[in-house]
Simulated scan of single mutants.
Amino acid sequence: MDEHYTRVICDICGAGFASDSRLRAHVASHEKGSYPCEECGKHFSKMVSKQLHIEMVHLKVKRNKCKYCDETFRDYYQKEKHALAVHGIKMREYKCGFCPKVFVRGSNLRSHERLCHIRAETFSCEVCDYKTHHKNTLTRHMVCHSDEKKFQCQVCKKSYARARTLKEHMRIHNNDRRYACQYCGRAFVQKCSLKGHLKTHHREHQNGDSQIQE
């Protein structure tokens, strides 16, 4: 269910989970444990947790297999998009019980209902005006108010406050140009670079509703 309905993400290793409680249990495995990952040095309290981490983060195992062909995908959503585009199978729809809105993921529907229709507890930042309905989201936000940068690049020694930021930074060293221009084919490491390229060289194609895919 964590794979199908990812709602919260671990800032340390990037693993996704369906609930806050599952994320908290997972984060605890990074604090203490006798099973270190040989790739990144993270420690886990259980061997199965270490193996799952290696599969998801380092091996990028694709667990979601298409029902209609042999294609495999890392998450349920990409598999459903493939089924629609290649096989003409319509994605399952999740309809809101309070308004006409429809979603393609059950997790998105639940978040919508909780934020828009059901009273939910609000967590407020003590430093700025930021507010959220998720305690773990507030915890991640608080990093921006801290000077601690504990995630260091082993190549250039730059340090970052978030593991996700370091992961994005590593694309520069790996020359990971995943953001390609659909008009000329030029590729970029960062999404913001592609956006700047589109504004500068392909402004005539920009109609305000184009989207850059991950």
Score class of each variant (00 low, 15 high):
residue 162 R to V: 01
residue 52 L to Y: 11
residue 23 L to P: 03
residue 129 D to E: 13
residue 175 N to W: 05
residue 139 T to M: 13
residue 54 I to V: 14
residue 32 K to V: 03
residue 163 A to M: 01
residue 90 K to E: 13
residue 109 L to D: 02
residue 90 K to F: 03
residue 133 H to A: 15
residue 15 A to N: 10
residue 132 T to G: 07
residue 10 C to D: 10
residue 120 A to Q: 11
residue 5 Y to W: 12
residue 204 E to A: 09
residue 184 C to D: 14
residue 90 K to N: 04
residue 179 Y to G: 00
residue 4 H to F: 10
residue 94 Y to V: 01
residue 175 N to I: 00
residue 41 G to V: 04
residue 214 E to V: 01
residue 50 K to H: 06
residue 54 I to Q: 15
residue 63 R to L: 06
residue 201 H to M: 06
residue 18 A to P: 02
residue 61 V to T: 15
residue 77 Y to I: 03
residue 214 E to A: 02
residue 159 S to L: 05
residue 60 K to I: 07
residue 115 L to D: 11
residue 196 G to S: 14
residue 55 E to N: 14
residue 99 C to N: 12
residue 32 K to L: 00
residue 91 M to K: 15
residue 213 Q to V: 04
residue 141 H to T: 06
residue 139 T to Q: 13
residue 101 K to D: 05
residue 26 H to W: 10
residue 31 E to H: 04
residue 48 V to Q: 08
residue 38 E to C: 08
residue 182 Q to N: 15
residue 2 D to F: 07
residue 164 R to V: 06
residue 12 I to F: 08
residue 25 A to L: 09
residue 173 H to W: 03
residue 164 R to M: 12
residue 154 Q to Y: 10
residue 6 T to I: 13
residue 56 M to R: 14
residue 68 Y to M: 11
residue 51 Q to F: 07
residue 170 M to I: 04
residue 93 E to P: 00
residue 179 Y to K: 03
residue 195 K to S: 12
residue 204 E to D: 09
residue 112 H to I: 11
residue 182 Q to T: 15
residue 109 L to G: 03
residue 111 S to G: 14
residue 72 T to D: 05
residue 173 H to V: 04
residue 105 R to F: 01
residue 3 E to T: 05
residue 137 T to W: 00
residue 178 R to L: 04
residue 181 C to Q: 11
residue 137 T to F: 04
residue 176 D to L: 08
residue 167 K to F: 10
residue 80 E to W: 13
residue 203 R to Q: 06
residue 103 F to W: 01
residue 204 E to P: 01
residue 83 A to N: 15
residue 18 A to E: 08
residue 165 T to Q: 10
residue 106 G to A: 12
residue 194 L to V: 03
residue 122 T to F: 02
residue 129 D to A: 08
residue 139 T to F: 05
residue 27 V to D: 09
residue 188 F to R: 03
residue 209 D to V: 04
residue 40 C to N: 02
residue 129 D to R: 11
residue 63 R to W: 01
residue 41 G to H: 05
residue 154 Q to V: 14
residue 50 K to R: 15
residue 24 R to S: 09
residue 2 D to R: 05
residue 136 N to P: 01
residue 72 T to P: 06
residue 43 H to S: 11
residue 130 Y to E: 00
residue 175 N to M: 08
residue 109 L to I: 03
residue 13 C to G: 01
residue 152 Q to F: 04
residue 78 Q to Y: 00
residue 94 Y to E: 08
residue 80 E to C: 15
residue 213 Q to G: 00
residue 147 D to S: 14
residue 137 T to I: 13
residue 184 C to G: 11
residue 178 R to D: 08
residue 194 L to M: 06
residue 140 R to M: 06
residue 50 K to Y: 07
residue 40 C to R: 05
residue 206 Q to V: 10
residue 209 D to G: 04
residue 110 R to H: 12
